[in-house]
Amino acid sequence: MDKETVATISYLSRLAFDKDNEDKITKDLENIIKFVDQLESIDTSNIDPLTSPLEQTAKTRVDEVTAKNRKEKFLQNAPDANEDYFLVPRVVE
């Protein structure tokens, strides 16, 4: 875990740290990763990962419209919106 890795994952996570915090974060992450590295010690070949403790299958939905229009409420809750759209600073493609 070095500063460059921390910079990459910070960017992927859209988080930023000021200089003072950078060292501390790097150190913390390094320790945590070292801690979880214990997992290496165990042989897991041929073991299926368990992604949910509920080993059952999904319930699904029939294709019927149930939602109602809540545009006004949703846009009201937004940090920036006009009467039709959520707004963000102009994105240049």
């Binding site: 809540r70 545009k71 949703f74 846009l75 039709d84």
Partner: peptide, 27 residues
């Protein structure tokens, strides 16, 4: 060409007024 979205009960009709075919889940 389903009536509703993949994970919510909001309509998929084309050409609706902006942000009207939006469910809690889609947001």
């Amino acid at each position: 060409s389903t009536n509703t979205k993949l994970f919510s009960g909001a309509s998929t009709t084309f050409g609706a007024e902006p942000n009207t075919n939006v469910d809690l889940i889609d947001l």
